[in-house]
Design a protein around this nucleic acid. Sequence first.
RNA 1: GGAGAGAUGGCUGAGUGGUCGAAAGCGCUCCCCUGCUAAGGGAGUAUACGUUAAUAGCGUAUCGAGGGUUCGAAUCCCUCUCUCUCCGCCA
Length: 424
Amino acid sequence: MIDPKLLRSDAVGVASNLARRGFAFDADAYLALEDKRKTLQVDTESLQSERNKSAKRIGQAKAKGEDIEPLLAAVNDLGARLEAAEASLQSVQTELRDIELGLPNLLSDDVPDGDSEDDNVELRRWGSVPEFAFEAKDHIELGEALGGLDFDTAAKVSGARFAVMQGGLARLQRALIQFMLDTHTSEHGYQETYVPYLVHAHALEGTGQLPKFEADLFKTTTERPYYLIPTAEVPLTNLGRDRIFEAEDLPLRLTAHTPCFRSEAGSHGQDTRGMIRQHQFEKVELVHLVNANESKDALEAMTAHAETILQRLELPYRVVALCAGDIGFGATRTYDLEVWLPGQQRYREISSCSNCNDFQARRMKGRVRNAETGKPELLHTLNGSGVAAGRALIAVLENYQNEDGSVRVPDVLKPYMGGIGTIA
RNA sequence: GGAGAGAUGGCUGAGUGGUCGAAAGCGCUCCCCUGCUAAGGGAGUAUACGUUAAUAGCGUAUCGAGGGUUCGAAUCCCUCUCUCUCCGCCA
């Protein structure tokens, strides 16, 4: 959520920032509603004040044994007036909040202009794209030939956009996950965390998936619905919900491996083949909870942590800064890591690292006590993939393939594979 | 799933309709006293929102959440959530 005070004081400035994303914010309509709120709130609170005073007077009179009838008569219609005022105030406040919850985060000034992913700006490349003396296969062909990747059976069980993996491939994915968690916890200072995979709506509202993107989520039909997490960002970031951290508790670096569930509504026809875009996939997530002045640096650090994974795996990748039109709802600045996929002859997203500044913290009331003033302030949150395991598996298969269709195991994964050097 | 007990400020814990935003203790901050330490005395110490130049005043809200009764609710009623104990079941 954008600071309501900023919305009031500079609605036009906010509108022009959001326009860079292609988001239309009607500043005039918002300010008109704001004026209405102000009047109603002042009226309502003065009625409340009146009620409180007379209630107190009645109490004192009664204590002295005086006749309270005339006092009661004087407040006769106050209740009805107050009720009406409270009702209209609440309806305006709900309306305002609905608008506020629907506004994406303000973009950082250094976000490049642009409308789509074509306008993202490449910052750097790492590694060299492999040259094969034969025609490189894609992960589907490789996986199915190895006998460990089965979309047909998955379709029988669960339909499209699911995969069954067995044997060496299943183990390879597990090895990737273990390797990532171990690296982040032992070298990058992250705390390994186990989190619920089903969460309540308020958690998703805190991170920004709700109320706007309900269609992207899977939801249970239980009496009180649960949502399947679309990313571990949701439970991890919400660990800071309704909390006031002491300054020395931060920064907090959290990591978790979870499955992620996405309905992929609206992505029909995209990446229907293979494991690129699934309803269920594994990911190792990184989350930082930091002091407000630390988030800019934290984004660079987090991105470097994700890059370390790809470097150790010796997978060629590039880093791009997402442009205004491609950046996510809650982010003020985002770097994507894109790994080279020989089967597609292009770079594909494998990690997305975002600084959300106080956008999520305000929604979930995550705060930190200022060491000097002693006052609670909103903390800043960041999240990033460190990295997507399913896509890392694809990248390993395609980049480490041999001519005969076997796949070499990256050196750093061998300890996790029982020393196996090749999957055949 | 059955039965019962709870949820109050940073913590412990009082408070069953009327100056209660809330006793007391602990903790913390500042001051005083005491030639270090310890002990003692005093003052202060929630959050959000509104108004405002103001983190000065003033006002409003908040005692798990939501609703209700009432002139007035931490206190009474209803619903929900969570925690604890016992029984059952279970990886």
